[in-house]
Design a protein around this nucleic acid. Sequence first.
RNA 1: GGCGGCAUAGCCAAGUGGUAAGGCAGAGGUCUGCAAAAUCUCCAUCCCCAGUCCGAUUCUGGGUGCCGCCUCCA
Length: 494
Amino acid sequence: MLQVYNTMTKRKEIFKPLKEGEVSIYCCGVTPYNAPHIGNARPFVTWDVIRRYFNRLGYKVRYVQNFTDIDDKIINAANAQGVTWKEIADKNIEAYFRSMDALNIQHADIYPKVSDTMPDIIKMIETLLEKGYAYQLDNGDVFYSVEKFEDYGKLSGRKLEDMQAGARIEVDDRKKHPMDFALWKAAKPNEPAWDSPFGKGRPGWHIECSTMSLKYLGEKFDFHGGGADLIFPHHENEIAQSCATIGDNHAFAQYWLHNGFITIDKIKMSKSAGNFFTVEDILKKYPGEVVRFFLLQTHYRSPLDFGEDRIKEAQTAYNRLKTAHKNLNELVKKVESDEFIKDNKTALLTLTQAGGLVETAERLMSAFDDAMNDDFNTALAISYMFELAKDINSYYNDYISGKIQPRGTDAFIIMRVSEIFTDMAATIGIFENVEDENNFNSELTEKLMEIIISIRQDARANKNWAVADKIRDALKTAGIILEDTPQGVKWKQA
RNA sequence: GGCGGCAUAGCCAAGUGGUAAGGCAGAGGUCUGCAAAAUCUCCAUCCCCAGUCCGAUUCUGGGUGCCGCCUCCA
């Protein structure tokens, strides 16, 4: 039974889909005014795993994620760089996809943009004006009147009178209430603008997500997510706008999930504070799957402190699972080439060991699912992968060293264990691009490595350890690790 | 000032009313020409105080510390 922590009720709830067998998700996307940093990536990795898990559970998932491509920051960036807002947005949307693709994030079903949703946004603002939830100023600005919405504050748990409006920024005194927010901003000279019944202008922040989620998911949908900093005011305002438009305070998203922040030295990473690392910079030094794995080793709601050391640790840990994955694949290949059946000396040890392996695997698979069912506890789920990896490696070592003789039943066991480990990996989204993992793994490199290894093997045969070690050390400097195993020399990228 | 979160080994991080997963680092063993990888063994009474309970790290109250939101922000 799947439980999720709902920000609206501040507790874990049993998930019940609105439609049997289907899940609808809206995750707030980015404002593409520059390249995404690692903190921006967290919600998308989180939701990617959630989607994958729902798929695993057999749900049909519909996932919508927006691009807010009209915004003050984009206009500012465009002015600063002397290009159009569209050029800024397009460029950064491309950067967004480059980064997220590297993190192995599956694409949304729809990526609506504000600039493509203008008629719907305008229509929604009209409705809010008609229903008396909004008002227009002489200059054309349209504001939402928070006092008109009785449930205002229900998501973030605050009351209008308790908030210190203007604590950090001056209040626009043309507003009826300090917390009122813009639905439509009248055009200033040289700004991109769209025609509307309220005059030329552009949408305020918040309205686009209300419009897009209602347009693509309907008046009620299952999940709405994003970073915890969106709870107020963004999501609070979305609720106010959407529920007022629909005329039902229980409409809109049923479950609100918010991820914690990525911090640096415990301080929230943010573009405005300048303490951030872009995803593409991190990817220059670490594979996307490692970055992804790093993020998932902590529960999505907990804060996560970013640091070079932490990523390195994650890489070491990730490599451990990867080794198990490789070993398992090797065993699977042997099964497929019938090596397991050939030798049918029925050592009792074999039965115990392989039988134990599959038993462990089944148990861990079940534990893995329990962890995921508990508000998508990837940190716990991953710990079970480590436990399974240990047993896989033990079996592999015993098999390779000839300590155990596999029999026919082992073949089935290996295939089942492989299926389980692959399922786990697929759920958290790793080990999917094993073929091209060595990004400098060209044919030429293969040949060169063959030559180098053969020369070194000659040296080793002559007990010329000095030369052998020199070659190994030199390769290590070049980022290639040699391992002398009973099955011959293996090499891999550092 | 209002609202919310967190405090678990050297570091990171799960979790439970009955004395605590996993990872990294570290120590020792096996394997190895030596390494590497792998594996085995070892490494915590859970911020402080009070209370409830047969029993609390886990519940309640208080305290301390850190962080976040109340502006844009994933």
